Amino acid sequence: MDDPTNDVSSLIHALTRGSPSEQQTAIQTYFTSSASFSHPFCRTGSFEGSRYLILKIYQWYKILSPKIELEIHSVAFDPKSLVIFVSLTQLFTPFLAPIFANRVDLDVKLRLIQHRHTGKYYITSQTDLYTIDQWVRFLIPWGIGTAMVCFLQFLATLGCVLGAWVGAPITWARERMTGQGQGTGRLGEMRENGIGKTAGKATGAIEHEAEKVEELVEEARRAALQADDERAEATGLELYGKMQFVTT
């Protein structure tokens, strides 16, 4: 692929709606020889020649449902990690039992490598990502499977809530043992006594420090005045001595 964001849509259509020869051409052109494929119902692994298995999976897929309708909603390509995510919806209709047609949503994850000289991108792995309520539609159609899965998921959520209630004392005990709830220093004091009390103490401490500063300023002023007086007295004595020397 020269431009993965634009080319991946035509590739997906060729694999899902193309003839067997078109499928083969697409896989040989865009997949590496050791590419892997992963799906909730099948897996190939990665080894030399494994893309042959991918081709047969797509050909069997086309045999099961000769007419496949799909809609690509979004394509996201990360050039740094060389990964493409494609979000799509497909309508799978088994030709032996068309009444079991199912419309499912899935995300396709493609890992790429870039050729050093040509700059083209090739697929090294494909992973089809279905949520449980989607792939179960292939096994239990008409929305029955989806309803069963949703019911079980809601039960699991209730189990999480009950578990959180029952296990709360254990969590609190661990928090006390590790000291996470108390903190250290001023933060712990604020948590222990409340922000209001801590703020009151901080205000009192500031006022006390301000009083100390005022006392120091007053002492410094007095020392300066005393030093000036002593300096003036020394100067006067010196002048008086000079006058006595002159008169004599």
Results as ranks from 00 to 15, higher is better:
Pro98Thr: 13
Pro98Asn: 04
Ile99Asn: 10
Ile99Leu: 14
Phe100Met: 08
Val104Phe: 11
Val104Gln: 13
Val104Leu: 15
Leu106Cys: 14
Asp107Cys: 13
Arg111Ser: 08
Gln114His: 07
Thr118Lys: 13
Gly119Lys: 13
Lys120Asp: 08
Gln126Trp: 02
Tyr130Gln: 08
Thr131Gln: 04
Thr131Lys: 09
Gln134Val: 00
Gln134Asn: 02
Val136Met: 06
Val136Gly: 05
Ile140Ala: 04
Pro141Leu: 02
Trp142Ser: 05
Ile144Met: 11
Gly145Phe: 02
Gly145Tyr: 00
Gly145Asn: 01
Gly145Trp: 09
Thr146Met: 09
Thr146Arg: 14
Met148Ile: 13
Leu152Gln: 03
Leu152Arg: 11
Phe154Cys: 01
Gly159Ile: 12
Cys160Asp: 09
Cys160Leu: 12
Val161Lys: 02
Val161Cys: 10
Gly163Asp: 05
Gly163Asn: 15
Trp165Gly: 01
Trp165Ala: 06
Val166Gln: 10
Ala168Met: 10
Pro169Tyr: 04
Pro169Ala: 05
Ile170Asp: 01
Thr171Tyr: 10
Trp172Asn: 01
Ala173Pro: 01
Arg174Asn: 13
Gln180Ala: 15
Gln182Glu: 13
Gly183Ser: 14
Thr184Pro: 02
Gly194Ala: 03
Ile195Lys: 10
Gly196Asp: 04
Lys197Tyr: 03
Lys201Cys: 08
Ala202Asp: 06
Thr203Ser: 07
Thr203Val: 14
Gly204Ile: 06
Gly204Trp: 07
Ala205Arg: 15
Ile206Ala: 09
Ile206Val: 03
Ile206Lys: 11
Glu209Val: 04
Ala210Gln: 12
Glu211Trp: 10
Val217Ser: 12
